[in-house]
Amino acid sequence: MSSSSWLLLSLVAVTAAQSTIEEQAKTFLDKFNHEAEDLFYQSSLASWNYNTNITEENVQNMNNAGDKWSAFLKEQSTLAQMYPLQEIQNLTVKLQLQALQQNGSSVLSEDKSKRLNTILNTMSTIYSTGKVCNPDNPQECLLLEPGLNEIMANSLDYNERLWAWESWRSEVGKQLRPLYEEYVVLKNEMARANHYEDYGDYWRGDYEVNGVDGYDYSRGQLIEDVEHTFEEIKPLYEHLHAYVRAKLMNAYPSYISPIGCLPAHLLGDMWGRFWTNLYSLTVPFGQKPNIDVTDAMVDQAWDAQRIFKEAEKFFVSVGLPNMTQGFWENSMLTDPGNVQKAVCHPTAWDLGKGDFRILMCTKVTMDDFLTAHHEMGHIQYDMAYAAQPFLLRNGANEGFHEAVGEIMSLSAATPKHLKSIGLLSPDFQEDNETEINFLLKQALTIVGTLPFTYMLEKWRWMVFKGEIPKDQWMKKWWEMKREIVGVVEPVPHDETYCDPASLFHVSNDYSF
């Protein structure tokens, strides 16, 4: 037999072997998808029940369902290793196997995995149920939502704001400190077992692309791009910072340095994350009609249902689908009040099986009107990829998912749209002054938050990498806050605090 014939037969044999492996992989994935749908849905439903009704029974049910899901994933991840990716030609099959071969938290021992889940659930519970009591009246206690958040959004009393700011960190942050220390250790162990340098590197892996249509993007490039983007917006932020400082000097004349940092408790919310609520103090042309339409919403008797129905109309107007019937029947759109304790931070849920929901303790404000559009943007994205195989139902990356939500809320905030839905009067006219007011309001929300987020994530990356010793977490946190964000702590904090974890995203294990 000629050498060319042998070569042809060899190629046929290799192709047949690849085809056999690929067919086996497809069969394996079909079985996995069928089983995963049910187990993931049960786990998601148990998590939803806990988040909307925080009880010991629900946390136990959530843990049990989560353990079943984790055990299943660990088993299936091991089985998926049997299919070598280099022998799979079908890109859809390869991407699913690649996702499943990534072990995630299931790489930890059973004891450590359970401990990590306990830590995460405990931190979430402390954050959502933590109360601050009035020292003069111990029976008068406030949760973060709505009590403390209400103070931080609306109060102009310097000392009341300081009390709310400090009490939240003292009551909740200190409880979270030992848990967060354990969390860092276990998450790093999980990341390294998955061949990442640390948990920050694991997060950045979400943005990594290897040879898809000839395109590559590394975790290191992400760090470079983040640094570059921050340097680009820094001059604009510094101008905004100086303008806000001048306006705060008028409101709090004896508390603000004309050349120094801004006190952290005066920036519009509990964390200084969004400066939106400073608009009334900083509006350049106050004689113009108010483009913050909160009062109009209240006057027109809007409620949470109306807010979300208007958001749905907005999405339908640009060619996107209505929310499902189940969305309206199962979402929690208002604070249950004293009936039950719930996690009030707005979140969009894709539970699986076409079950999409939003959890939000909606208030009738323009801020929540825009947040509703943001969260519904997440749901629209979830619905758009719902037909994909189970392992591919995700956003391109976390940042893109947020961008989908944010672009919709930005569009909904324009005076033209607000006028079209009757929240600005029919005779409202846009001119240079109203446009400047609008742009300032947008800058308070968007530009003001960028250094906050950059600095927070930089601190977390450094902590996970071990570049900040545990006994210097708070020292470095406030050094970076002053240097990068231009914000100063109103009272000193020692290493018993854990100020970063006083933010939902940190205590609940979300990256930005």
Rank of each mutant, 00 (worst) to 15 (best):
A71G: 12
N61R: 13
L95F: 08
Q102H: 12
E22N: 02
H34W: 07
W48I: 00
N90F: 15
L79R: 14
E57W: 06
L73V: 12
L79E: 01
L45F: 06
D30K: 01
W69I: 15
L91I: 13
F72W: 14
K74F: 08
N49L: 04
A71H: 12
Y83L: 13
E22Q: 13
Q60I: 13
L79M: 14
F72T: 04
K26R: 14
I54P: 09
K31T: 00
D30Q: 03
E75T: 15
L95N: 11
I54W: 09
D38L: 01
T92P: 15
Q96F: 00
H34G: 05
V93Y: 03
P84W: 06
E37C: 00
F72R: 06
L95T: 10
N64C: 11
Q89N: 14
N33A: 05
E23A: 09
K68G: 05
L73D: 03
S19N: 07
I21H: 03
E56N: 08
Y83M: 06
L39P: 11
Q76R: 15
A25R: 01
N64S: 11
L39V: 14
L45E: 00
K31E: 02
K68F: 04
W69Y: 05
L95G: 09
K74T: 10
N61P: 07
Y41N: 02
Q60S: 07
Y83H: 05
M62L: 08
N51T: 03
K74L: 10
L79C: 00
I21V: 14
K26T: 14
E23Y: 08
Y50D: 03
K74P: 03
N90Q: 15
E57C: 04
Q42F: 02
K68T: 06
Q89T: 13
Q89F: 13
S19G: 03
A71T: 13
W48N: 00
F28C: 01
Y50E: 04
M82W: 06
A25P: 01
T27C: 15
D67M: 13
Q24S: 01
S19R: 06
N63F: 10
K31S: 01
Q60C: 11
E35F: 01
V93G: 01
F40M: 14
A65H: 12
L79W: 15
L29D: 00
Y50S: 03
E23C: 14
E22K: 05
N90P: 15
Q60K: 14
E57F: 05
Q98C: 14
Q24F: 00
I21T: 10
D38H: 01
N64Y: 13
Q98H: 11
F40D: 15
A65R: 14
W48S: 00
N51K: 13
Q89G: 14
F72M: 06
E75N: 14
A65Q: 09
Y83E: 00
N61W: 06
E35S: 00
Y41S: 02
N90G: 15
Y50A: 06
L39H: 14
I21G: 10
D67Y: 13
A25I: 14
L73P: 00
D30M: 06
F28T: 01
S19E: 03
L91F: 10
P84T: 07
T92L: 15
P84H: 04
A25Y: 02
N33W: 01
N51H: 09
N90D: 15
W48A: 00
L45C: 00
E35V: 15
P84Q: 06
W69T: 15
D38F: 00
Q102F: 09
Q60W: 11
Q96Y: 03
Q102T: 14
K68D: 02
H34T: 07
W48E: 00
Q24R: 02
I21E: 04
N64M: 10
D30R: 02
V59T: 12
A25Q: 00
P84L: 05
T27D: 15
K31M: 06
A71W: 11
Q102C: 10
Y50K: 00
Q24N: 00
L45A: 01
T27G: 01
K74W: 11
I54F: 06
L45K: 01
K68L: 04
Y83I: 06
E75G: 15
Q89W: 11
V93K: 04
E57R: 05
N51L: 05
D67K: 12
L79P: 15
S19F: 14
H34P: 15
L73C: 11
E23L: 12
H34A: 15
L95K: 13
Y83A: 07
E75V: 14
F40K: 15
W69M: 06
Q24V: 01
E56D: 08
V59F: 09
L39F: 12
E35T: 00
L39K: 15
W69A: 14
Q102I: 11
N49C: 02
V59P: 03
N51Q: 05
Q24C: 02
W69K: 15
T27P: 13
L73A: 10
N90L: 15
D67R: 13
F40G: 07
T92E: 15
N33E: 14
A71D: 09
V93F: 05
I21N: 04
T20K: 04
Y41R: 15
D67N: 13
Q76M: 15
D38M: 02
I54G: 08
A71P: 01
Y41M: 02
W48T: 00
Q24K: 02
F72A: 04
K31R: 02
Q98Y: 07
Q76D: 13
P84Y: 03
D30Y: 02
Q24D: 00
E23I: 06
F72L: 07
H34L: 02
Q60R: 14
E23S: 13
K68R: 13
N63A: 12
M62N: 05
D38P: 00
E56Y: 08
T27R: 12
M82R: 14
N61I: 13
V59I: 13
P84V: 02
M62K: 11
N61V: 14
L91C: 14
W48L: 00
N51V: 05
I54K: 06
N49P: 00
K68V: 06
D38K: 01
A65Y: 10
A46I: 03
Y41E: 01
Q89R: 14
N51G: 04
Y41F: 00
F40N: 14
L45N: 01
Q42H: 15
V93W: 03
E35I: 05
L29A: 02
L73F: 07
M82E: 01
E75H: 15
Q98G: 12
A71L: 12
Q76V: 15
A46Y: 06
N51F: 06
Q76A: 13
A71Y: 12
K74I: 06
N90R: 15
E23R: 12
M82Y: 08
N63I: 10
D30T: 13
